[in-house]
Simulated scan of single mutants.
Amino acid sequence: MNQMLEPKPKFEEKSYIFHYRRETLEGGFEQIHAHQGIEFLYVHEGSGHLMFDQKLHPVGPGTLFMCQPYQLHKFKLDITPSCPYIRSIFIFDPSLFERYMATFPALHMFFNKLWKAELQQQVLQLEPIQQTLFAELLFDLHRNLNTCPELQQTEEVVLFLFSLLREFRKLTAGEPSSHSSSDSMRTNSRHVEQMMAWINEHFSEEFSLDRLAESLHLSPYYASHLFSRETGCTLSQYVMAHRIRESRLLLSTTDLTIAQIGQQIGFKSSAYFVKSFKSKMGITPQAYRKQVNTLYVD
């Protein structure tokens, strides 16, 4: 009698990305972007803020950020030679790692919560003892991946992920604490958050700075200047980033045509959508859809 065997889990080349203590010593900032996978980012050094979930969050040494698939985010750091931006980044495809969680019910449940549920807290400021723990956890993975045989790297990454999830579960077990700031800074942040919320609601329509400013009782010039100053990008760039983010989600999860997706997210023509997508992503929407579908096939 033939026994049907479940195929062994594949560890695809693109199933995770790990950068240990990546440095930016001066110059430009990252564009607004979203990942297909789950991202954990830990700040070793740097000072600035994170634009995420329609809010501005302060960023400094010990900031830990967890981002779900396709969530838009952008870091804006005050980078100088004496104050560099140093961070460690771990991004992984949850669909390819879920199978490793199956034998740990509680951890599996938490894993799925991080992947798919609406979360209360995704930006944390760690205490010194917690900073030491996370720094050691990241260094261990960096060292192990550089010294162990290639066949053992799968095991090292999975064990690291187990430890990471356990620690993050402890950190998010309580209620999140709110950050304090001056009245003027908080007012500016509130205006920027309101602008992001307005765009998130109206991104599929033709963008109008006048309409946005009027809805918030601000002058168009002030709204545009404030958003650029606080986030490091223009309102138009944020609108485009949000549309590209939505298109990636639709390309990955629906069978809508390229033209239908372009129209649904606010592009006047499919040609302009394809051109804009390729400019931001480096490949066409059709190629991106094919790439994603290939990645999820066993």
Rank of each mutant, 00 (worst) to 15 (best):
H108P: 02
K280E: 14
L107P: 04
K113M: 10
L251N: 11
S184F: 01
V192C: 00
I199S: 00
F90S: 05
K268V: 05
L137K: 13
L216F: 00
T172K: 03
A135N: 12
L151H: 07
Q130V: 06
L124D: 05
A223V: 03
E193Q: 13
R243N: 01
H33Q: 10
I261V: 14
D78W: 00
M51T: 07
L212W: 00
F75H: 03
I86Q: 02
L250D: 07
T132C: 07
S270D: 13
K10A: 12
F97P: 09
Q125D: 07
S279N: 11
G28S: 10
P285T: 11
F168K: 05
L251V: 03
R229F: 07
P285M: 08
R248K: 15
L138V: 04
H202Y: 04
L50T: 04
L56G: 01
V297T: 13
K76E: 00
D298T: 07
F134R: 06
P220E: 04
W115V: 03
M195Q: 08
G37E: 05
M66N: 07
S236H: 08
E206W: 05
P220N: 05
K275E: 11
N293M: 12
E136T: 10
E39I: 13
L41S: 13
V43W: 01
G266Q: 01
R22E: 13
L164D: 11
C148D: 09
L96D: 08
D255F: 11
D298R: 11
A223P: 03
L249I: 06
L56Q: 03
T103L: 14
G62P: 08
S182L: 04
N2I: 12
D183H: 09
K278G: 02
P94N: 07
S236T: 10
Q31W: 04
E39L: 12
T284L: 06
M281A: 04
T294W: 06
Y222G: 00
T63P: 08
I129P: 03
Q68Y: 05
L151M: 10
V297D: 12
F65K: 06
I261E: 08
E156H: 13
L138R: 04
L72A: 09
E98Y: 13
E230N: 00
Y100I: 05
E98W: 10
S252W: 05
K275N: 04
F134H: 09
Q286N: 10
R87F: 10
L209I: 14
S224V: 00
K74T: 01
E26S: 12
